[in-house]
Structures are given as structure tokens and as C-alpha cells.
Design a protein around this nucleic acid. Sequence first.
DNA 1: ATGAAAGCGCTAACAT
DNA 2: ATGTTAGCGCTTTCAT
Lengths: 341, 341
Amino acid sequence: MKKKDRSGTTIKDVARETNLAISTISKYMNGGTVRKKNQELIEAAVKKLNYFPNNTARWLRTSKTYRVGVIAGIVNSPHTSAILNEIEKKLRDHGYSVSFFSFDENLDKTKEYVEYMISNGVDGMLITIPGNTEGQLIFPENLRIPVVTIEENSGVIQGDCVQTSCTQGAYEITEHLIKNGHSSIAVIEGRRNSLTASERMKGYFRAMEDYGIPVRPEYVVQGDYIYQGGYLGIHELWKLNEKPTAVFVTNYDMSMGAMEAIYDLGIRIPEQLSVVVFDDFELSVMVNPKLTSVRQPLAELADAACELLLRRMNGDESDYPKRIRMMPSCIYRESVQDLNR
Amino acid sequence: MKKKDRSGTTIKDVARETNLAISTISKYMNGGTVRKKNQELIEAAVKKLNYFPNNTARWLRTSKTYRVGVIAGIVNSPHTSAILNEIEKKLRDHGYSVSFFSFDENLDKTKEYVEYMISNGVDGMLITIPGNTEGQLIFPENLRIPVVTIEENSGVIQGDCVQTSCTQGAYEITEHLIKNGHSSIAVIEGRRNSLTASERMKGYFRAMEDYGIPVRPEYVVQGDYIYQGGYLGIHELWKLNEKPTAVFVTNYDMSMGAMEAIYDLGIRIPEQLSVVVFDDFELSVMVNPKLTSVRQPLAELADAACELLLRRMNGDESDYPKRIRMMPSCIYRESVQDLNR
DNA sequence: ATGAAAGCGCTAACAT
DNA sequence: ATGTTAGCGCTTTCAT
């Protein structure tokens, strides 16, 4: 039997070794009380045979796997990895392990992934959609396990979710530029049809409007949420006769491209151009000067999602569906020049 | 029953719906042939009831979970996330999903983690040890599933592993400095007792020796593999009367600290100081000027590890234990001044 | 091609 | 406190 080759010692072996009933072993392994003598017997046998209980078989009876499925974007991005890191830590603290899938492109496959996860026996799921992903989350029809989504958008999903308000962050950072005396404020937009992109633009437009500053069409350049977009965006802006005094780059990847272009063109920050960016990762403090940016509370987001999921998995459905909104915060560093002085 | 609340449709339900035997359904689901009429019946029922087979129960019979356990360091680091990303993609392509644990501190808990993973029913395991982690991998005694480790060290583990040669990379990058006319070459060392640290230092010392350049003790400054170490290291070097013309920073976190210190002190790269670093992530190209660095082939490492594990899980033990060594490569950019010109 | 039945490792009544 | 037994969802002989 293949079986015997792979799987190690079972509860049966321990029972045989100790001359006790299987159920006694089971009881003890689950924290029940047995006679001291038997406890010692069991301990000895467990050690000798190197037995540890099989959660998978356990699940068959209890319908608990203590495993949660996580579906996320490319791990190798600071956004996803920050969230994933927090999720894993948090869930492990609560005795859960995580199985995860990442998807590269679109969301079409989520349904398939979700089904696969359930096939694999998870007690619940966490889904985090990177803001620059197109498409819609699709769930199998009669989903029986709790799912909490972590996202930057709003309105995409029904059900439990935690999210950040992109509009708010974009508004604040634009306002910051305005308060520093800027009115020629360019923006490098995210990909068309992206919800986060339009949320962020909304924040920008609203701030401009609130302060009565007209938006010049040539200052709104179309990006795509990737490196390239930021790079080309800056080049485009720098061809203008009347150059902006500030630029708001609306996501992380684009901000790297933008910085590259800024170096290439020899533009001095903040003397010639003030720069603010959406998302705050390592780069923001490693470039010179350090960037003023909008920071999404990723760890807090992940934490809240885990808490909620944990409650759901424990059967508490009281406040379903719950939508938790968190506010991003602006981090003021050295990349903005104060034009008032 | 809790049970019924959570778990969805079972094979039983499909059998009832179609008036066929459970075993017929099972056969069909596993690619066996059934009468056309029955096939249609089953398909219809599966769709109607939204049935998908439960891998976990399946495992009970087949001892295959199609799940592999991954134990890695902090996900939220470019090193780990690059590897994890590749592993997940690769394994998913082969029909496996990944369960993972990360550990923050030391390796003492690996044994526990490994046991837990096995309890959870994985077909194999991948363990990646970040080079800056102390301690020894400890495995449970009669481990019945294949394990492949991915590491930067050599000699720590018996069994299958893939690794990079740190010594080689450190040698090459030091040699590069020498060939560019440098002889006052400082190095910021990794943490004491770290194997990778000593491997990297070995590369440095060997290159210096091969080219007959004496190593000045004050140019070897002790770091700790974290940000702080790089930061303080540069400050320490810059207090010296005879400053080095080049510095080799031996890991990523320290190189960030070093760059920070370099900015703070207003040191110009490469005019005043040439900088080379071990590890090549985003930072290296985002700073100005771009950094010459040693790049570990992380994706390739992960790929090779997956290939090997996949073979082992398919029962091919032919070349056990296999040790695959990969060479890092140097990426020459703009942070080194050519003193020969 | 189909079905009946045994059994994977474990837990949970229930009886002792 | 311990043992007996049924059964979780599924695959796999072995009959039919």
C-alpha cells in the first residue's frame, strides 16, 4: 500500500502499543483526562512512535480543518506581501494555518479558486483584490463557508469586507499640496476602468474643486498602474511649456517609474517639482528626498479581516454583512516644497 | 449537526439525485467511463447541487492531498516573497496548492512546524531559510514525506536542497572593485554566527588575498544584517581619517541603512565612495545612482526546488540526496567609479 | 458499466 | 475512566 509508505503512525498504533482503546487515546489527545498511569503510557508511546494526530481525518468528523484559504494577487509585491504576512501571523496565533492562491491577471478564475479551496477543506476564506486588477469577484452559488474580502474598492462585493477609502487619501494629499501653495498640480492616473483609479481621481478632483482650482486637462495624464506609466507620465509632463509645480502619482509601481524619469531628466525634488504618491513602501523613504505619501493601513486591514473571519468561523453571524472602512493616512516627508514661504 | 451547516454537497447527494451508486459517481469524477445517459445525469446533478469533490476525504484513501507545505521567513521581505511567489505559481501549475508558515525569529520551532504541516496532510514540504536566521533546522525523526530546502548556506542540512554560492558572489563583486582600481575596500559584515555572513566574508577575503591587497582591520565593520547595521557601519567608516574608496555591503537590509547614512552624510556615489551590495531588489535601481550588486537567482532557485520536490512526490528517489548549487550573478550598474581612468 | 461493502484516521455518543 | 461502535466523504476491491 502506498498509504503505509507515506503516512506515519496512526492513533491505532498508539492504541496497540499501549493496550488502550483508540477512543481513550483520542480523548487524551484532545485534552480529556485519563489515569495518570495511562497518561504516561500514552506519552511514552507517542514519543516512541512519533505520533501526531492527523488534522485531515479529524476534519472528517468535526468539520474543522483549522485551515483558511487566502486568495491574493502576486505575492511578490509589497502590497500583497504586507497583507499576507500579517494574515499568516494573526491566523497562526489563533491556531489556523493558511493555504493560498495568488492570481496574476484577472478575477475570472476566482470562482474556480474558491471551489478548489473549499474542495481542499478550509474553514473560511480571505480574499484580497489588488486595486489594479480588473474584473469581478465571482463566488460559487451556495457558498457555505465565511468569506471576508480585503480591498481598496467599494461597492464591488456584497458580504463581509474591509477596505480603505482611496478617495479620502487622495483628497488629503492633494489638499496638502494646495495648502503648500501649489495650484499647478498634475496627476498621473491609474488604469482606465479601475475602481481604485477612479476613486483616487475623485479625491484629486474634489480637492481641486473645493479650493476653487481649475484642473488643466494637460496636467491629467493617463497611466496604467505599472512602472511604465509613471515613467512616461513624467516625460509627458516635462514636455509641456508650462510645467506643473507638483505631481500626484497614484500608485506605487507608477511612482517608481516616475522617480526613474525624474532622475533621468535631472529634475530636482522638491525645488523644481513637488512629488506625492499613493502607497507607502520601502521606496518612499529610500529615495532622495523622502517622499510624502498616502499610506494604506495594510496590517490593520489584514488584522481586522482576520478578526472578522475568526468570529464568523466561530459561528457569530450577528452583524453580517459587515463593511469595515479604514482611513489611509498621509505621511509628510520632504518631497513637497512650501510655496508660501 | 454543525457538519451539515458547513460542508456542501457530498457525493451521496449526487448519488441520491441521480439514483446511481456512490461508486459510479466516484468513478466518473475520477475520469472513469459511464454510460452516456448517466454521464448526462451526473453532470446535471453536479451542476444543480453545485457539487465538487472533497480532496480532504479523498486523501484518506489515496494518501495524496495535492498540497505542499512551505515554511519560510517573514513574507514581507523581498527575498521571501520572490521565492514564495515563484513556488506558488509553479506548484499550482502542477495541481498543487500551498499551505505556508512563516517564522520570524529562529529555527527552533521548525520541528514543530513540520509536524504541524504533516498533521495537516501535505504531500511534501519546501523550507526556505533566510540567510540571516540563526539556529538549525530540526526535523522530526521518521519523516515520511519529501522535503526540499532552499537556502543560502551550505552544509547545514542533509537531504535534498538547492542553494546559492554566497562566497562566489562576494568574490566576484569584490574582484570587480579591485579591477576598477580600488584597494581601500571596506566591508560591512553580517551578523556573527551566521553562515551566509561568513561565506560572504570568505569571498571578500579571498579576492583581496588573490590580488595581494592587505585587508585593513578598520575597514571591516561588524553589522548585523539589519538596517541599523548598515547605517551605523557607514557612519563608523566615515569617521576614519583614511576613508575607503569603496564599500561592500553584505545584505539588502543593511544596504538600505547604508544608503540612508550616505544621504545623511552627503557622500557622493561613486565620486567619493563606490558602493556594491549583496542582493538585488527594487532598491538597487531606485536609488540614485543605481547600485552594482550581487543578484541571487531566486526564481530559478524556487523553480529548481519545486521540480525536485515534484519528482520526489512522484516517487522518484533516484538521486537522493541531491544538492543543487546555483551561482549568483553580478549586475554592474553605476555605483562604482573606475579609478583606472 | 454498475453496485455493495469495506476501510482510510479520527471523534463522539453510548455503554460499561 | 475506559471501551465499543457508528460514521464523516471518499476510493477501491469485488461481485454482478
